Simulated scan of single mutants.
Amino acid sequence: MAETETAVRRDRRERSRWVDAAIAGLAGGLVFGLYLQFVVGVLPPRATADGVGSLALDWAVHLFHSLVFAVVYAELVGWPRLARYADRAGTGAIVGAGYGVVLWGVATLVVMAFWAVANTVWVLPIPGLNLGSLVGHLLYGVVLGVVFAAVRR
């Protein structure tokens, strides 16, 4: 009987992993976004052609990215070697922090270079290793890891 209950619980946990990731990603994205907006000051509304910016649109894009990267995190920590660490808040924070640093590195070193080329900047910029951005990505990763572990329980 206990074996059947364990299998049911395991199946339910597998089915809800993306939902758990979405909850954790929104929590991490919220903390990261508040940090960007009020501490770093890089999430103000952008001016558009009519002179009006949309803070709501910037937040929507930011939270969408937070959700996408949370689902990627959920898939990565689904690997058996990482799964045992991701299901506990303390070690989940460490795994999440590492994930945040990797995201920061990829965003800084790769994505920004491709964005520059796509926007007709033909000389690739030297990556600016922004400490504020690193701290924000670390916050995102830690909150993602802790909340993911908490909702997985």
Rank of each mutant, 00 (worst) to 15 (best):
T108K: 00
A22N: 05
A56V: 14
F38T: 11
Y35E: 07
Q37G: 03
V106C: 05
V151G: 07
L131T: 14
L109W: 01
L30I: 15
D20S: 13
V95D: 12
V106H: 08
V19Y: 12
L76S: 08
A27D: 03
F32T: 03
A97E: 00
W59I: 00
V135K: 06
T120F: 10
V72F: 15
Y99C: 00
L57H: 07
W79E: 13
M1S: 01
R46L: 14
N119G: 10
W59T: 07
A118R: 01
R9K: 15
D11S: 09
E75D: 03
A70Y: 01
I94Q: 05
A7L: 08
Y99V: 04
V31H: 03
M112F: 09
G25K: 05
Y85V: 08
Y85S: 07
R153S: 15
L134C: 05
V19W: 13
V39S: 02
L129Y: 11
V72L: 15
A7K: 12
D58G: 15
L139R: 01
V68N: 06
G145Q: 00
R9D: 15
L67K: 02
G141N: 07
R13A: 13
L131F: 11
A49F: 12
L103A: 06
M112P: 00
L129M: 06
A93L: 05
F32S: 03
A97D: 11
P44N: 08
